[in-house]
């Protein structure tokens, strides 16, 4: 169907309506290709989140508790990391992991190759761990500082006191993880660069939306966009429910 100059607005409305209808159909039939793309998105971002929680929560807790020379510099670097353009992270990871790059040329098993899900996970960890660390730090600092002192004076070890404070700040810590998830599930530039948008392998929701828009398949692009919106909506619902239970 050719959109004439005069009918363009009507066509655009049809396009959106068709997109909504097709999105409903694709979801209803659990279209295997769409489900695969959703699966890759969740796997990549879920794995990345696991790593960034493992790095970010201890780092955030440590920065929240301790006083040392240069702490301000570390915090400033962390805040810079929270606002770091993801596509720049993508560029650096690309150059590092390339077969001609410093890590890729080592050719060892623990360095993921470019254009694999492993490379995408590396990029997403770097993008999300400063967020997790930053929000965790804020949450830990929000806990009454006398709690920690009291616990230690009552005979708790340093480690036990830290865990108790983290438990007290659990809501903020979970929010930090969900914020990290939000930042990477919707990211496109870095995963496009280091993943290569390979069908059936490294194609995720965001890169698929770019590709289908480029091909002029607006209906499919809208369908994928709705799924992406649904995912971030669900993660926010989860966050609010947790807030309700713990507050």
């Amino acid at each position: 169907m050719l959109c004439g100059e005069s009918k363009r607005r009507r066509c655009a409305i049809n396009e959106i309506w068709e997109g909504l209808k097709q999105a409903a159909l694709l979801l209803w039939h659990l279209d295997p290709e769409v489900m695969h793309i959703v699966g890759v998105s969740l796997r990549v971002s879920g794995t990345a989140l696991l790593f960034s929680a493992a790095i970010g929560i201890p780092l955030g807790a440590w920065l929240g508790f301790s006083r040392f020379v240069g702490r301000r510099l570390v915090v400033a670097l962390l805040y810079t990391g929270m606002g770091f353009p993801p596509v720049v992270v993508g560029l650096f990871v690309y150059l590092l992991l390339s077969q001609s790059g410093p890590l890729g040329s080592l050719n060892v098993a623990w360095v993921p190759r470019l254009f694999t899900v492993g490379a995408m996970v590396v990029a997403q960890v770097i993008i999300s761990f400063p967020l997790v660390a930053g929000f965790t730090m804020a949450a830990v600092k929000g806990v009454d500082p006398s709690l920690r002192q009291q616990l230690i004076s009552l005979g708790a070890t340093e480690w036990q006191a830290t865990l108790a404070v983290l438990r007290e700040a659990r809501f903020g810590v979970i929010v930090s993880v969900i914020a990290g998830f939000g930042s990477i599930i919707s990211e496109v530039g870095a995963v496009m660069l280091v993943g290569g948008n390979i069908e059936g392998s490294t194609r995720v929701l965001t890169t698929a939306i770019v590709l289908e828009t480029r091909r002029g398949n607006f209906s499919l692009a809208i369908a994928l966009a709705l799924i992406l919106l649904l995912l971030s909506f669900l993660s926010n619902i989860l966050m609010l429910r947790l807030q309700g239970k713990t507050a």
Partner: peptide, 15 residues
């Protein structure tokens, strides 16, 4: 918390 962790871990396992 264990549930959240289990979900994340299972996602990682699939990778």
């Amino acid at each position: 918390l264990a549930l959240v962790l289990a979900v994340v871990l299972s996602l990682a396992g699939c990778a």
